[in-house]
Design a protein around this nucleic acid. Sequence first.
DNA 1: CTTGATTTGTACGATATCGTACTATATAGT
DNA 2: ACTATATAGTACGATATCGTACAAATCAAG
Lengths: 148, 148
Amino acid sequence: MPDPNTRLYFELFNEIGIIAQLNRAALERHLTNGMVLPQFSVLNHLIRVQDGRTPLELANAFQVPKTTMTHTLSGLEKAGFIDVKANERDKRSKLIWITEEGRAFRDKSIASLGPEIAEISTAITPEQVQAALPFLKALREYLDAARD
Amino acid sequence: MPDPNTRLYFELFNEIGIIAQLNRAALERHLTNGMVLPQFSVLNHLIRVQDGRTPLELANAFQVPKTTMTHTLSGLEKAGFIDVKANERDKRSKLIWITEEGRAFRDKSIASLGPEIAEISTAITPEQVQAALPFLKALREYLDAARD
DNA sequence: CTTGATTTGTACGATATCGTACTATATAGT
DNA sequence: ACTATATAGTACGATATCGTACAAATCAAG
């Protein structure tokens, strides 16, 4: 019998895992062209944060192995949504820039998600989300730091 | 430019996705025999909730497609951690029972996770987790129900 | 009972994820 | 400059995930 604390943390991660899964499935239903959640997330990140990032920086931002990021980026490049350019400062690495097509695709996707978000926000209010975010960020930062 | 609400919900799902990923990686570092998070979760569920469930019930509990659950269960069966028996009540389906080996493996795994959990709980207190769970459950239930 | 629709599980194929090993470049220590 | 070590990215192979299509069993309507 595990102690109650263990059970509590298991439940936490279980809920989080299921939410991630449901979110992924829900999102992908809205993305055309077989675009997939990680690809969309990268596109979004390039706009939200900044483009001109290296693949490794992106891998770290999403906490995935760099091989996974290579694969994600190759899909985006094939779709014409990003440009992969040489990095003059460090010839080992590359720089990722979003294209006009990528930007347009991202905007269109977000627009098509609007109604979905509006519906969620009736059940789960923005205030609740605001209230929950600090906890989630703290948890994410802890797990990130604890990765030996 | 997406409206601030959209951005807020994106951030929420982004954090949750990363936490799920980090949790998975952290857990699998502790599981021997190449046991993988979904397999462990199923084992845990069979004890926590009850065994003698059908594969479809398990798939629904974890919100994964039934084909994914078939695959997960076949790994557990090959490892000798579950028994798959015929269901006399409904010959289309099967019933999943945990074996002694499965129970022992699960207990051992949880024990080996103890120190990790103890360490998390210094940074993220059980009280914080308790406080966050209702929100996460509500979100999960909403997403579950919204799957048309 | 019989027929048609539904449900459960699986086989199969496509793609995602990720660990290992490798190449090319950069950096540090001498 | 030279060598050892570290870092960025990729190729490759193993496995996970999941959609489609199917077979077997059940259920519903008559």
